[in-house]
Design a protein around this nucleic acid. Structure first.
Lengths: 99, 99
DNA sequence: TTAACATATGAACAGATATACATATGTTCA
DNA sequence: TGAACATATGTATATCTGTTCATATGTTAA
């Protein structure tokens, strides 16, 4: 008997979409940047030397996938990683690369 | 003092490339398919109801990223997941999706 | 060697996506 | 209220990528 179930196709499509989010270096750099402490959009843009709108667009993708959480403080929006889950996924990937 | 080092940019580009590989549903389905037992190219093509050449192209991507290993047996090539690392990455992603 | 089969590869095309520019929305403070 | 600032969003575009068709490469068995 085989009681191991293959994930159904729908779920695998969702999973692919999730990994797509990790599959862009700008988004990865953002995630690593805010993994320890929250940062504002302009902080991130400055750190990565990229346009504010570019960062904002990518943060939206991260938000939509529940990978970050946001907090408003006055005019600024502070972003941080949503949970340690995300960190673990990144670490697993690193482990693979580093053999 | 902060002895936690940020991964350098080069490494993050590599990491993004790795996640890109996971970010396609066809490749994910292949990986899940061969996670328990090795299968030939035509087995996979049949299971996914896709062209042989499509599968072959994607298997090459998986090979290049050292995510699968191959074994020739006569005319057939048998593919299997390279290590449990890969399974773990997929499982972590699943966990995130399933909240 | 040749036919039949399994897999790999090259080229072309369609669809997806990251970025930049311009501008809108939202917030503070005078 | 209005000016200044921070962020979000719409649009356009250049680049990337997955799939297919056609064909090449490699293997077996006669």
């Amino acid at each position: 008997m085989n009681d191991k179930q293959l994930p159904d196709i729908e779920l695998l499509f969702e999973l692919a979409d999730l990994f797509k989010v990790f599959g862009d270096s700008t988004r990865l750099r953002i995630m690593v940047l805010i993994s320890d402490s929250e940062l504002s959009v302009s902080d991130i843009a400055e750190a990565l030397k990229m346009e504010q709108s570019t960062i904002s667009h990518q943060l939206r993708v991260l938000r939509q996938n529940k990978l970050v959480r946001v907090r408003r403080d006055g005019k600024q929006m502070y972003y941080a990683l949503d949970d340690d889950h995300v960190k673990k996924i990144i670490e697993m990937g690193m482990d693979h690369i580093l053999e």
